[in-house]
Design a protein around this nucleic acid. Sequence first.
DNA 1: ATATAATGCGTAATCGTTTACGCAAAACCT
DNA 2: AGGTTTTGCGTAAACGATTACGCATTATAT
Lengths: 318, 318
Amino acid sequence: MLGVSTATVSRAFSEKGRISEKTRQYIIAKAEELGYCANIHARNLSSSNSNIIGFFYPSISTEQPDYFIIEIQLGINQVLLSTGNLLQTNPMPPESQGNGPLASYRDYILSGGLAGVIIVAGSSESVKLVEIARAAEVPYIVIGHMGIETQYTVTFDNAIGAALAGKYFVRTGRHHPAYIGGHLDKRKQKGFREGLGETAASLIFHTGGHTFGGGATAFRELREKYPEIDCVLCANDVLAAGFIKEAIAGDVRIPEDIAVIGFDDVRFARYNTPAISSVSLNLHLLGSTAAQMLFKYINGEPVTPELIRCELIIRESC
Amino acid sequence: MLGVSTATVSRAFSEKGRISEKTRQYIIAKAEELGYCANIHARNLSSSNSNIIGFFYPSISTEQPDYFIIEIQLGINQVLLSTGNLLQTNPMPPESQGNGPLASYRDYILSGGLAGVIIVAGSSESVKLVEIARAAEVPYIVIGHMGIETQYTVTFDNAIGAALAGKYFVRTGRHHPAYIGGHLDKRKQKGFREGLGETAASLIFHTGGHTFGGGATAFRELREKYPEIDCVLCANDVLAAGFIKEAIAGDVRIPEDIAVIGFDDVRFARYNTPAISSVSLNLHLLGSTAAQMLFKYINGEPVTPELIRCELIIRESC
DNA sequence: ATATAATGCGTAATCGTTTACGCAAAACCT
DNA sequence: AGGTTTTGCGTAAACGATTACGCATTATAT
């Protein structure tokens, strides 16, 4: 205590309340000198808010980085750095791996620890988390398509992106297309078919994991069964990389023999040799848009759903 | 209030204090029913701790993901998932970009918001942050080499890793080595030289950015000035990817004409074509080790510095 | 000069837990 | 049965801020 009440000290830091500029300066100076810093827990308790934003995403593996998620996170962080908020990153491993951390995430949200949350669609846990956020009345933004009716969402139009890829293949004289991915990405499949038009008649589907190894396996299986295939759309870039690598190892020329397009346009797609053509979702923009929407929500401003445009980036694999 | 005092409710959840099994069950059940969840801020204030771990790292860019950092984060998260702690990720952009978020990070640490911090060496801000953590008496672990005397550190021996690369080049009959990197990584340079032995006499240094573009530029410049170069050690994998891509574009065969080794062994090194040989730092292990050390520190157990072994992974680029 | 409004700051209640303390009841001795 | 220990739980004091309220003091208006 340096001659003033705690209320005054609080006012000196809070930018609210009435206080003379002189005492504010004095208190700030003294605080600096004494190394005083307002206790964050007391602050949060008293004012019942927080400056932490939670980012929740399905995590495929605890071993391999998920380039898709990382680039979204980068976009979120860019916004947060300018607002002084902090980011908490919460992977949600597949349910098979024990009960998982969902219970602990749930408690954290319910107990008011977060100012808002951003949730990436893709697993059943994502859906549960949205319900928790709603129940706790914590502002939330959903990234991607979830079977939930909500305005707080930013999506990308996979179908249009896939259609662009289909049209490109037709335009560049390809006749034997294949699609490699999971059975869940119906939108991509449907869009691709639309883009291909009549050529869709000869379309081959191949389902497998969304991994590098999955791409390699897909190449081998397709090559054996359907040697006529001359163009491939992959559900993501890592998958495309695996396909391309195995193709080159099998003396198939990319793009001369088979043209390949990936999905997401993650950073390393352009590092690859040949550089991978990709349907760009603009992940960075996706993340930063989600963050901006969340702040609007938190501040009580109206929020409308956003859609990020897909763009087809042609590189050496085509 | 359902007939018991708040103290009893607290005891029902805290696993400490004395409470009969019957009332605990009763309270838990009722809590579930009423959707009660202990307020995290009050908890933290009262018990003056937190379950959040802060992860601070120098961030090169808000646009490009830093694969090095990401894989460390993955390792940290794996440990955290099993302990019920939460991770807060805090990029530290280069100082040039405005004042930066350091002040806000400082306040957060000083105000007791974090149970512990993990700091990646590499910028002047990293050093400041360590000093802040010390001043605030918050448990911390440093990843990498910082000019600070501390036992709370986990490092990797760059020099030994680089020496392995040097020896490999000599053993496989290369005679005109080059090193591409920054002027800061003296350890790598020194180790490489040692590994090369006599061959070090003809070593060419090239300094530039640690980026993909930097690798491409390096290839062009070196090729023009020193066409005799037949093996290259790059300061990281992304740099190596850029070098390789530009080399292939210039009709130089990898590895026949030039053998290339990268550093870090990030995930995509093996996706590349040709797959990039790399000095593996085992980033995942680096992260999980740091997290485990931090928990020891937090629990008051003795902590000794750890060193992660480097390993040379040979792939197609050699 | 007086009335009125604006400003600055201290008092004390509040936020929702945890936990030392104390007392009754139950459990354990001999 | 009487004494001692153990157990279960309520009381109330922290934890360290924020903020409504009220009282001086100063500024503004008439």
